[in-house]
Amino acid sequence: MSPLPAVEELKALIEAGVTGAAVAVVPNSSPSGQHSLLLDREHARAVAEFLRDHAELRLDYCSLVTGVDWLDRETTEKIKVKKVVEGPDGSQQETEVEETRKTKTPGYLEAVYHLFSMEKKHGPVILRLRTANRADDGHVPSLTPVWRSAEFQEREAFDLYGIVFDGHPDLRRILMWDGFVDYPMRKDYVPPADDALAGVHA
């Protein structure tokens, strides 16, 4: 097994090899130590081809493709702000007041790719693509033209998470039936009531 460069080196390699690509390291604090690389959507396809064809890396095998749903988050934090208030004697005074601030972080859908090399027998290199949000822009580029193994798995992520893979040759539902609406693996999915289908086939 030939050694694989660390994620920081991989990031530098990609940014040197693919012009304009923006790569961010997503650290993983688990004992597994499997850190990943977040790619920008515009250059993802080029980066994928670069990683597959690079003579040292030869990541010819895309093992796993999956979706992950990250909900919109609302974080509340208490911060101290300085405010000028009028004192009891009428003078202007500066005091510290505690305020609660709510910040909304929009959620996103994530497509995660685990790459290995059958030739060099190393891996995994983990790529992540993120959609702009969970509602109206659920697009990421498809990597099926680079690795055929993504074909069914991207269809599954489309089917269960609603991630739209632009450039996929045959993007249809795969496990759920064609008429199904909604995406059952999303975190806010509400399953239909037990009697919801009663009478449908009557």
């Binding site: 993983n28 604090s29 688990s30 004992p31 597994s32 499997q34 093992s63 995994p124 983990i126």
Partner: peptide
């Protein structure tokens, strides 16, 4: 209750 993080085992 594993610490936040991720792992792929095969």
């Amino acid at each position: 209750r594993p610490k936040a993080g991720e792992a792929y085992g095969r």
